[in-house]
């Protein structure tokens, strides 16, 4: 939940690290909490800017954003797409299991 202060506690950092798929030690969690808090504090001025009469710009105004024509074309070959895979087998990327078996299986 958003609150008024620009403080980030260790629990929030733990949650962010999980979302970002990063493993942080307790020391690192504390450092990130302090560091991110300081950055947001320095950036808090922009919260006061009145943006009610302006269209938000996720891209520079006037940028092209064209789709290509719906024509089939040859993408990367299978072999080339797999060539950088850290572990591949039979034309597939190999990874450890995604779901653990439950005790009853």
């Amino acid at each position: 939940m958003a609150d008024g202060a620009n403080t980030i506690d260790v629990e929030r950092v733990r949650h962010l690290a999980r979302l970002a798929r990063l493993k942080l030690t307790d020391d690192e969690l504390r450092q990130h909490a302090a560091g991110l808090g300081a950055i947001l504090e320095a950036f808090r001025d922009i919260e006061q800017v009145d943006t009610s009469n302006v269209t938000p710009l996720p891209l520079p105004r006037g940028s092209a954003s064209a789709g290509r024509e719906d024509v089939a074309h040859t993408p990367l070959s299978h072999a080339r797409a797999l060539a950088n895979g850290p572990d591949t087998r039979d034309g597939l990327f190999l990874v450890p299991r995604i779901f653990q078996r439950s005790q009853n299986d």
Binding site: T51, V54, P56, L57, P60
Partner: peptide, 15 residues
């Protein structure tokens, strides 16, 4: 509060 706000300010900067 942060991302949308920043995109708004980006509009003002371009203006």
């Amino acid at each position: 509060r942060y991302y949308d706000k920043a995109c708004g300010v980006r509009g003002l900067i371009q203006n």
